[in-house]
Simulated assay, not measured.
Amino acid sequence: MPQPDPPRKSLFKTSSFYSWSLVAVVTLVVGWIFFSRWWQNRVFEHRMRQERTEKQHEDDLATLEQLGGKELAIQTFYATPGELRRGQSVQLCYGVANAKTVKLEPQSNPVWPSYSRCVDVTPSKTTAYTLTITGAGGNTKSQTLVVTVR
């Protein structure tokens, strides 16, 4: 005679059900922790990248403004020393922004657009030097400087 099947235990009465349920819950919690940390790091990196881009843009604008912006400008034009004796040399220094050409009169040495450049001159008498710059659009600006010779 065949033996009757033993009575089946309820699913809730088996220990393996609770063990696997606990493993599943722990796995879900650990998975959620890893996912949330990954997501927070991603948001943080995105925000930092955005702030870095904005800071770089601000720095670029500040640098452009320091270098004269978009306007044609003579930023500096001075002599060192401003007064000298006959036969001595003086340095004429200039800085221009957005200039296409630069002309220094009276001057025999060539000059060109630069943010900071000096040329040596040896005037025999008190001389007025004129720096004239021309922009790409044809606009010009001039500035005059007097070097006194004693």
Rank of each mutant, 00 (worst) to 15 (best):
K103T: 11
M48V: 14
S108W: 07
F34Y: 13
G31Y: 14
Q40T: 08
T140C: 01
S89M: 12
T14S: 14
G87E: 09
K141M: 13
T126Q: 02
S36E: 08
L11N: 01
T27A: 14
E45D: 14
M48K: 13
C118L: 08
W32D: 06
L84D: 01
A99Y: 03
R117Y: 01
K125F: 06
F34M: 10
Q3W: 09
C118N: 05
P113T: 02
Q143R: 14
Y115I: 04
V147N: 07
T53D: 13
F17H: 13
E65S: 06
S36Q: 10
R49S: 14
V25P: 04
R37C: 00
G68Y: 00
N109S: 15
L131Y: 02
R86F: 11
T122L: 13
G137I: 00
V96M: 08
T27C: 14
C118K: 03
E65H: 01
T126M: 00
C118D: 00
Y78F: 09
R117W: 01
Q88Y: 05
L131Q: 00
P106N: 12
T130L: 03
G135N: 07
V30S: 12
G68K: 05
V96P: 10
G138E: 03
G138V: 04
T132R: 09
Y115L: 07
L28V: 15
T53M: 12
L131K: 03
V119K: 11
I74D: 01
T122W: 15
G69I: 07
S21H: 10
R86G: 07
S16H: 11
T53R: 14
H46W: 06
Q66D: 14
W20Y: 12
E51L: 15
W112E: 09
Q143F: 03
T140D: 01
V147P: 05
L67V: 00
E45P: 03
R42T: 08
A99M: 01
V26S: 12
A128H: 00
T130Y: 02
N41Y: 11
L104I: 03
P4L: 12
K55N: 12
W39T: 08
E45M: 13
L61W: 06
Q50R: 02
Y129C: 09
R42D: 10
